[in-house]
Amino acid sequence: MISFDYVPVDDLRAASAAGAHAHTRFIAGGTTLVDLMRLGVERPTTVIDLNVLARKDASLTAVSDLPDGRLRLGALAHMSDVAWDRRVRDRYALVSEALLLAASGQVRNMATIGGNVLQRTRCPYFRDVTQACNKRVPGSGCGAIAGRNREQAILGTSEQCIATHPSDLAVALAALDAHVHVRGTSGERVIPFTRLHVVPDAHPDRETVLRPGDVITAIDLPSGIPARSTYLKVRDRASFAFALASAAVALDVSGGTIRAARVALGGVGTKPWRSPEAERALVGKAANDAAFHAAAEAALAEARPHRDNAFKVELAKRTLVRALTEVSA
């Protein structure tokens, strides 16, 4: 690991200003950054510790009700605290489930909400500095396309990159139309969650719309979410593994008819994959197998598998059908 300056900050404005410099990274839980620094993938010369800030400003770690019925998750709240929060469990089951199905108890105690949605891909070519990777070194090529790609994405891929976005939480947040509060060098702004991440296209090194110095301060969960929601995750191990396919869904069914639907897929997209196609296929239809299968077909219509991951197309469809079946049961 290269040598770096460690800078704890206790002021958001200072953090943002310091973070705008080149070769600078924020650290909160550290579960992504330390991992990648030890691999040589991340090589910051300055690391800005936000934890002092978190201890000083309780709003950054709190889960709080907003007057209009939304729920605000402080960006520096730990995954475990949000996952176990009674309001989250009752009103946003898919968020709680996505968190509890992610990582391990220890990682959830360390990692923060803001850090979680910014975690980097698990693509083995990205994580190994001896390999070609356009995301890590633009223009160096993509080892995964010509190599082993069982775990890679089938949606949102490009000629340059097929790396899967690994976050479970982000899939739930994409389904919910959450909003992200960002503090940057030029003040605060709010970003719809589905616009936070970008697909790789020709620039896989660019993963979000965040700018240097931006600090995520909170994520708002909207009100009026269908009461029945779930996050279903399919993986090789029974626990402590990244998704091969996952589905975050929320359905409002009345009189047997689907009034509203939220659908997002994980483990298959280069970004948390919201599927308006699936939602359109569901709304107004009877909540039955036929509608669920139609939604699954719509969600995966654009899938582009590679040599080893063709199974993900079918697996993602079945995962989505199962999730829809469960929330409508």
Partner: peptide
Amino acid sequence: TQIDPNNGRYLNADLAEYKVPVNAD
């Protein structure tokens, strides 16, 4: 254990991607 078909690199050379059973298995 997976190796890259082109350069022979061990691809899943860690305990996240080389999956041994965890308690829940």
